[in-house]
Nucleic acid binder design. Structure first.
Lengths: 218, 218
DNA sequence: TGCCCGATGTATCATTCCGATACATCGGAT
DNA sequence: ATCCGATGTATCGGAATGATACATCGGGCA
């Protein structure tokens, strides 16, 4: 199926879990959900949506808007609202429950993480751990290959390498913090509304006192 | 031609500038040069190499290795060493001198930066500035879109957003530092071998929004 | 001595994916 | 009144990937 398409499928399923949407908005949401990464194009989204309808994960729905009576207007190209079917919910649950490399993959980890609120604690932990280990591994072989060829690099190339390394290191640290937070919350939670936030670092950047945190709503 | 292919072309040209190589090693070097990003596959590399040979940027060369005499062995699939032609050097210089979005693009910035040592100071500065502004812009619209929909996000999604934001902010800071370093070295250097390293973490932050080409991504 | 195996090496191809574009409607600014 | 940018659905040529095939080589080891 292709890793990327799989990530897209999960993202669509997850977003439609909250509310029905049409393609245009879906695309914006998916791409802002993953923010940083490469954006999905319509050439990927629409075929994917069709396939998902075909498999009965989604249902199309053309809402009768204000202009109620729309008779046999053939060439009419109306808005199409997609919503989740029960099969779609099931599919989402299946995909979320996966803990193999297909979950901590570069392409797919972000989507999985975004919907962690709908996964169980054990799954979360396995994915976090898997992701962390993969990055750590990559870090190690990168470092060793660097030390083998360091002498012949000019200053800019070297700086690029250093910066890349630092980024991945930071990523690992982020994951470590998240893992700690998860572990802490396992101890304190059994059948009770959890209030612990996954945020465990002492950051200040946004300077923006928000109270959000409904934990996972719906 | 495709952004990605262009990045690959520049990387190949730049690497062969130092020493001839064959495809296998070329691929390893290119991919470790960019480290973090997506790796190029052979299905991309070999066709690209052929095209570059066709355009006369590269010359193939089957070196007579230690086992000197290799007679009319027909089906022999030998190693192919690629080396830069004068046209190739020219092409490299042309690509490096570009300062449009095609230089500070997500795909291409890294390669350009890696070979900054062979670009002049003015080009370096323009690319750095362009890249910085592009990221800053992306940051702004991301922040505003976040504040518009913040209330309905669950904790994990929010954390993902926050982390993405932080990464880009850090990237901008990195660029700011590099820009400061470049500016400092402009003052002290005219027609002299520069020994200053690009790394100098005493940034004079943004200060001045110079001209920018905006070009939008998603 | 022979054999196996992982690294090196070149090459291709079906499938997947992107980027550009076409087409259409709508609300708001001038 | 009309222009224009945002919203919206859809497709297609071509670019890129991931998998695979094929081949050589050096070294470990029974």
């Amino acid at each position: 199926m292709g890793r990327r398409a799989e990530a897209l499928e999960l993202a669509v399923l997850g977003l439609l879990h909250d509310a029905p949407m049409h393609g245009y908005e879906l695309r914006k949401r998916v791409n802002s959900l993953l923010g940083w990464g490469r954006a999905f194009s319509y050439g990927t989204l629409y075929p994917a949506l069709k396939e998902m309808v075909r498999r009965n994960y989604l249902a199309e729905d053309a809402p009768a808007d204000a202009t109620a009576t729309q008779p046999a207007r053939s060439g009419r190209r109306g808005k199409i609202v997609y919503k989740l079917t029960p099969e779609g919910k099931e599919r989402f649950a299946d995909l979320m429950a996966q803990t193999g490399p297909s979950a901590w993959d570069d392409e797919r980890f972000g989507v999985h993480f975004a919907f962690f609120g709908r996964a169980d604690a054990e799954t979360r932990m396995r994915i976090l751990l898997g992701r962390r280990n993969r990055l750590q591994e990559r870090l190690d072989q990168f470092r060793s290959s660097l030390s083998r060829t360091r002498e012949r690099l000019d200053a800019y190339t070297l700086e690029l390498q250093r910066h890349g390394l630092e980024s991945v290191e930071r990523e690992v640290k982020w994951l470590d913090d998240l893992i700690s937070a998860e572990q802490a919350s396992i101890g304190t939670t059994t059948a009770q509304a959890r209030a612990t936030k996954p945020r465990a670092t002492a950051g200040e950047p946004p300077a923006d006192p928000t109270e959000n945190e409904g934990e996972n709503g719906r």
